[in-house]
Amino acid sequence: MEEKENKQLFALVGRNIAYSFSRDYFSKKFEKLNLRNHQYINFDIESIADLPKKIKENKTTLKGMNVTIPYKLEVFNYLDKIDRKALKVGAVNTIKITKKGKLKGYNTDVYGFKHSLLPLLKKHHKKALILGTGGAAKAVGYVLKKLDIKYKFVSRNPSSKKGISYKELSEELLQKHTVIINCTPLGTSPNIERCPDIPYQFLRSNHLLYDLIYNPEVTTFLQKGIEKGATTKNGLEMLELQAEKAWEIWNS
């Protein structure tokens, strides 16, 4: 009876997340820590409007959630409270359920990205290109601003002053922007041959290419950087760091 009462459930909120880093990571973590009453599942939902139903179904045991594509922005409307940093970023990827049953949103992508990027930065890394404009891209932009690295968002249809289109990427622009971060899903397994449409021929050894994708380990985007002698990094460490930060929040 006691075991049932102490059950603690955690979940990943997203769409088409049959395989998820979070479920695998936390399931192994619970096993390692011998937390038999802890379970991590996927809330694979077609619409964010389905979230309240999922929460209601698991009301007695649900303690926290992670949020992934495409709901990091949409989830705002379903939260009772939002952490100040997440509010500034404009995206939530971690939700804590308080003792009173309230939902509070946080952003741990910021922590994960910052601490995985810092060891790679050199003095000449003054300007960056962020490929994509979703929730993860917003967290990346927030970190770069804090690190005093000027950046531009690159997308197919730029809507902000800080945005440019892929067609505008010239040799001159790539020589100035020596940090390039892929925040799009292009190149994720199984479609590993895909990559963002940037002029890779203008990459040099002073470039730093960071891909938020971790599966495959070396994406086509990163491989094209390696061929030009650039420094490269995938998103695995960022994911691990943000997951640990989420765990800290849920247990605080």
Rank of each mutant, 00 (worst) to 15 (best):
E3M: 13
E3Q: 12
K4S: 14
K4C: 15
L9I: 07
F10K: 00
L12R: 10
L12G: 09
R15W: 14
N16Q: 15
Y19I: 10
Y19V: 08
Y19L: 15
S20G: 14
F21K: 06
S22F: 10
S22P: 09
F26Q: 02
S27V: 04
F30A: 01
E31Y: 12
L33I: 05
L33C: 07
L35C: 06
Q39L: 06
F43G: 09
I45F: 11
I48K: 12
A49G: 02
D50G: 04
D50M: 08
P52Q: 04
K53P: 00
K56F: 10
K63M: 01
M65E: 02
T68F: 06
T68E: 07
I69N: 04
K72Q: 00
L73E: 14
N77T: 13
Y78E: 09
D80W: 09
D80I: 02
K81L: 12
I82P: 00
D83M: 09
D83K: 07
G90N: 09
V92A: 09
V92E: 07
T94Y: 10
I97M: 10
I97T: 14
L103A: 01
G105V: 03
Y106Q: 08
N107I: 00
S116L: 03
L117M: 11
L120F: 14
L120K: 13
L120Y: 15
L121H: 12
H124Q: 07
H125A: 13
A128T: 09
L129Y: 10
T133N: 15
K138A: 07
K138T: 02
V140D: 10
K145I: 01
K145Y: 13
K146Y: 05
I149W: 07
K150T: 13
F153P: 12
V154S: 15
P158Q: 09
S165F: 11
Y166P: 04
K167C: 08
E168V: 04
L169F: 11
E171K: 15
E171T: 11
K176C: 12
T178V: 08
I180Y: 11
I181D: 04
N182H: 00
C183K: 10
T184F: 10
P185W: 04
L186R: 07
L186M: 15
L186K: 13
G187E: 12
T188H: 06
S189R: 09
D197V: 11
I198M: 02
Y200G: 01
Y200D: 01
Y200W: 00
Q201A: 05
F202I: 01
R204H: 06
R204W: 02
S205C: 04
S205M: 01
H207M: 12
L209W: 05
D211T: 05
I213A: 13
Y214A: 08
N215Q: 12
N215P: 02
P216L: 02
P216M: 04
P216H: 05
E217D: 14
E217Y: 14
Q223T: 03
Q223M: 11
K228H: 02
K228A: 03
K228M: 03
K228W: 01
G229Q: 01
T231A: 10
T231I: 08
T231M: 05
N234T: 00
E237T: 04
K245M: 10
W247S: 03
I249Q: 12
W250E: 00
W250F: 01
W250I: 00
N251I: 00
